[in-house]
Structures are given as C-alpha cells and as structure tokens.
Design a protein around this nucleic acid. Structure first.
Lengths: 231, 231
DNA sequence: AACCCGGTATGAAATGCCTCACAGCGGGAG
DNA sequence: CTCCCGCTGTGAGGCATTTCATACCGGGTT
C-alpha cells in the first residue's frame, strides 16, 4: 500500500513523510474479518489497536442476561481497542464486524514508539479519547434527562450525520440498522422503538423502506430531540 | 512548595527530577475555591487543566430543567478539565467545589510542552483518560441493565472504596453525601433513593448517622449490586 | 423564640416503559 | 417451493419509578 492511500484512509498518519512511513509499514498487520465475526470480547487481554480500513463494526457491552448495549458503531478511519493499550486492563467492550471489515493492527510497543517519535500522533490520540469521553457522558445524560422519543430522535439524527447520504432535501441512513439495534443503542426495548418509530412516521418526520431510515423533516426531529419530559 | 510534597500530592509528576521541577513550577498557578464555588461551567471556553491539591469537587452535567447528573466526585491528586485541552471544545461539564479546594492550574501550551519533553506524562494522561472512558461506559451499562436497588448498592460500594474509612469490620464513607446527591449519581429520584436506602438499612446492610453511610455487610451489598432485574 | 430552609421520611396516585403474546412478512437454506 | 428464522407490527396488562402531597427534624438566622 502506498503512503497516500494509507493517509487517505487513516487520518492518524496524516502528518507522515515517506521515511516514517517505511518504518511504520513494518508494524502494521492487515486483518480481515467477515461480517458477523468478533474481533475481540470484553474481558479478553488486549495489547493491540486496530485502525479500520474498510467496513463497519459495533462496539457493545453484553449484559449477564444476554442483552447488549451498543456503545458505538465505527467505520473506516476510526480507531478501535485503544483503551487496553493505555491502562493495561482487559478489553472494556466486545467488538463485532457488521460487514466484511479490514483493519490494520498495531501492537502496544509499536504504538508507544510511534508516539514517542511523533507528537502529532499523541495529539490525535488524545483528541479521539476526549471525543469518546464527551460522547459517553452525553449518552449518560440523555438516559437521565430524555424520554425514549427524544433519545430516538436524537439517535436518528446522529446516525444521519454519521452514515447519512444526502438525497435531495432528505438524508438517508446508508446502513441497515434494525429496531433491535436502535433499542440497544438508546436503552429501550425493541417494542418501544417500534411504537415510537410509528409515531415519527405518522407525523411525516421519517420514512423507512428496506431496512434503512430516511430523515424527511430534520428540523422537526431536532426539535423533538430537545423536548424534556419533566418541565 | 518542595518537589517531594508536590509529587506526594500529584502522581502525574512522580518521575520528575529537580531540574524539571524548576521549570514546571513556573507554569503552575495555585487557585483556591471556597466550598460551593464553581470552578467552571459546562459550555465555557477552557484552556487549562487543574490538578487537585486539596479538597473535593463534583463534576456535573446540568439538564435544561434544573436537575443535574453527577458524573464524578474528584479529590486530591485527581486531574480536572483535561478534555477541553485536547480537543479544543468547550468544557464538557460543570465543576463545583464541595468543600474548600485548592488546585494547581496548568495552561494548555505548558502541558503540551511538558508532554513533549516527558513521555511519562503522556502515559499517565492516557491512563487517566482510559480509566474515565471505562468508568462512564460502565455507568451507562448499569443504567440499562440494573434496577435502582443494584445501582444504589454498587454506588455505595464505590463510594466506600473511594472515600471509605475502615472502622473495625465496617467501612464508613468519610464524606457527607445527601440522598439528592446519590439520586443524581445513579439516575433516580431522591424519593426512590430514600426508599431503597430504607430497605438496605432494614436488612442490616448499611447504617447512616449524621449524613454519612456505614457499610455493615459488604458481601451482601456486593451480591445485591450484581442482581439483574430481567432474568 | 420564632422562622426558614434544606434534608429526610413516607404514602397514594399517576404513568412511561416493559413484558408477554401473537401475527405477518421476506429472504435464505434446504 | 417450502420451511424456518429473524425482523417488524400491535395490543393488553403489569410493574418499577416518578410525581405529588404532606410532615418532621435540625441548624442557622433574625
């Protein structure tokens, strides 16, 4: 692979010159995971980090009774499995490929060496971690402050921003997301999601066909995402 | 202040020699906050990091309707306000002193310079961030998977580990925590907390007097913290 | 003393969400 | 083609929590 193509896919290496690239290249191991396969389980020992080249994965925490909480869906360019690298503890979540996925795998020592020599990398990693903390903090706040309708509206907007494809005035979410997935993302049951989706559809805010969601009236959704149930 | 005393209080500087200390000392500004005072508000611009020397603060997210979610209580040795430093975004939460608190304040550029020269510091910061992510992820999972009883039991154990003072076979939580605080920590109403506390007290697992909680039967509490409501 | 205020205590009523139960539908496996 | 399985759709009933209302208590203030 060329440096240019790598940089295009993995923003972490944006500032690299060709000499750095040569030494880096040796450390990267490409891995391929068919859809459905588990990259690693919560509780596993973990000493490496994945850079997603292609595909999509879901990051989940399983409950003791078989349910799961979906913390995030990550795709090309995202970093994965970094926590265990920095605190030496077991993997904090389970990661599963949603579709065929390729990653570049980097070992703890190599990443540390990289960070020692390239402060850019440190800065980028810190930025990623900071964003993650913000995101989960907000998720937590939403669980406490918003009802299911608002959380759902918010999540649909969020998915639209992340995976959305503009189509005329509308946005279509370019990934297949089941109601069960939505439920696991916002902390609700599948049935509740189904009913709330029906409400949103009846109001003409969204439409769904073939497993994907289209956002029809973004503004009204944004409005719903803000409503606080306890005024 | 001497290097030794600083290192005792702030683990971040554990590996420092006296020459590094001299240059570091210039960058640190001591700040004093009386109890109740706000260090900064969510949404503020933030370009500096605080190292808590003494005292305790609460980190909260306020809702639009006046409630608050308590994300954490931090005390001496902890780091505060680091997120804005790494991603340049506004403060992600509000921080208020619970008692008289002194911090050492370090500006963005100084911390970055410090990290460039001392990789130890980078490693320690990464470790802190990793732990924070783990913590909120688990809080989020608990909100979804556990009922209030379990969350409360877990939080009491957690407080015991953090602020506990061993007294014979028991542990007393050495900070005054109101039921309202507990409610804001685990995402419930004050009344619910009151009722669940009564249950725990009636079962002889905890006792409270003068605003503090004593853990009487740790094992049984641990057991309660594990019960999943949907088996 | 009289007062207020924040915290605690408790019960009754309201409700949002979950559980359960069942039915239809489409796509992949055989 | 048919069977099966996972996803979707929907209603009834139940339950955990919240909401609301009310009372008490102790400490600080006037």
């Amino acid at each position: 692979m060329s440096l240019e193509k790598l940089q295009l896919k993995i923003p972490l290496f944006a500032g690299f010159g060709s000499s750095e690239f040569k030494s880096l290249e040796k450390c990267l191991v490409r891995r391929r995971y068919p859809g459905g396969q588990t990259l690693f389980h919560m509780g596993d020992e973990g000493g490496s980090l994945h850079l997603i080249e292609r595909g999509r994965v879901k990051v989940t925490i399983p409950s003791s009774s078989g349910e799961e909480l979906i913390l995030a869906i990550r795709g090309a360019g995202d970093i994965l499995g970094e926590l265990s690298l920095f605190d030496g503890k077991p993997r904090s979540a389970t990661v599963q490929a949603l579709e065929e996925t390729e990653t570049l795998c980097l070992h703890r020592e190599d990443l540390l060496a990289l960070m020692r020599n390239h402060f850019d990398v440190v800065e980028k990693i810190l930025e990623v971690l900071a964003r993650r903390i913000r995101e989960t903090d907000m998720l937590l706040a939403d669980r406490d402050f918003l009802d299911i309708t608002s959380r759902l509206a918010k999540k649909i907007l969020d998915l639209g921003d992340t995976f959305g494809i503009r189509e005329g005035g509308q946005v279509r979410i370019g990934v297949k997301i089941t109601q069960k997935d939505l439920a696991s993302m916002i902390g609700a049951t599948r049935e509740s999601i189904n009913k709330q989706l029906k409400v949103l559809r009846d109001q003409g805010l969204v439409r769904f066909s073939g497993g994907t969601i289209e956002i029809l009236k973004r503004e009204r959704l944004v409005q719903k995402a803000r409503i606080f149930p306890k005024p």
